[in-house]
Simulated scan of single mutants.
Amino acid sequence: MLQIDTLNQYYGESHTLWDLSVTFPEGECTCVMGRNGVGKTTLMDCIMGLRPLRSGAIQFQDHNLARLPAERRAGLGIGYVPQGRQIFPLLSVEENLRIGLPARADRSRHIPDFIFELFPVLDQMRGRRGGDLSGGQQQQLAIGRALVIDPKLLILDEPTEGIQPNIVHEIGDIIRRLMEQLGLTVILVEQKLPFARRVGDRFAILDRGRLKAEGTMDALGDELVREYLTV
């Protein structure tokens, strides 16, 4: 589904991602893990075209994303839920959802009904401003906005950050449901190990901008956790 090959990225003269190569298999949830500041969000921003690359390739199906403008990537079927949600606080819930519709390949201008089936609270609050929602409701809105484009790949950057436990559990259930029912491929940036183990099929661990380990979730043992994930 998504293949990254020898990717290098810099902030000025600071080398932040080092010859990074990793594969995200189709139909699976891969958890990108690591301590704060190791390059997880930078990698997601590179996939979405929000940060420039120095070198390397990002292959999504038949498209090399490395030189593709950011505004064209959603149209290929990549949904992105950024860290911090980044909804539009002064727009209504419905207006936030409609923002993604122009990226749909079928040009539909109708919010899919299944969005409101997944997140009934969004249906109840269609006219309420996004900034008036709770943190958990805003996260549901951000995920709904990404799903509106009918993605094949869904990227979620720290979706459980600052969210109450019952909503965290619900989000995990929804991720698995989307994969099983819609065949979505998911990249999940996550630091909560129990959540990652429950939701993920695979893991990829970053440290100081380098890939240190990857594999199926059952291969994420205590030694790797101690070396790269504990604070």
Rank of each mutant, 00 (worst) to 15 (best):
E223I: 11
Y80I: 00
P194E: 02
L65K: 01
D123G: 15
L224S: 02
Q138S: 03
C46W: 08
G77M: 02
E214L: 12
Q9G: 10
G79Y: 00
T185E: 01
T185N: 05
V22F: 10
E161N: 09
L220H: 04
M44H: 04
Q191G: 04
G131P: 07
R73I: 12
I111Q: 03
G221E: 07
I205V: 12
N166G: 04
F119Q: 06
A219V: 06
P25K: 11
V168H: 07
L2G: 06
E180H: 12
N166F: 11
R126C: 06
T30P: 09
I174T: 12
R128E: 12
D207L: 11
S14G: 11
G12M: 08
I115C: 02
T216D: 15
Q3W: 12
D106A: 09
R145F: 03
E94G: 08
Y228A: 04
I187G: 04
L53I: 12
A196T: 05
V168C: 07
G79T: 02
L122K: 03
D5T: 14
L193I: 15
M179H: 01
R54L: 13
L147C: 06
T6F: 12
S134N: 06
L188K: 00
S55Q: 14
E161I: 02
T23W: 06
H15N: 11
R98Y: 04
S55D: 15
I174L: 02
M179F: 01
R198K: 13
R67C: 13
E71L: 12
R107V: 04
L90Q: 14
G183P: 03
Q59F: 11
M48W: 07
E117M: 09
G79N: 00
P52D: 10
C31N: 10
G183N: 05
N166C: 10
E26A: 13
R98L: 06
R98E: 14
L90Y: 13
R126T: 08
L211N: 08
G131I: 06
I175F: 02
R126L: 11
A196S: 11
G49M: 03
Q191F: 00
E26M: 11
G136L: 01
G37M: 05
A103S: 12
G37V: 09
N36V: 05
L224R: 01
S14M: 14
E180Y: 03
C31S: 15
G12N: 06
S92K: 09
L156R: 02
L90E: 14
G200I: 01
E26D: 12
G183R: 04
M48D: 05
H15M: 10
C31I: 08
G183F: 00
Q181F: 00
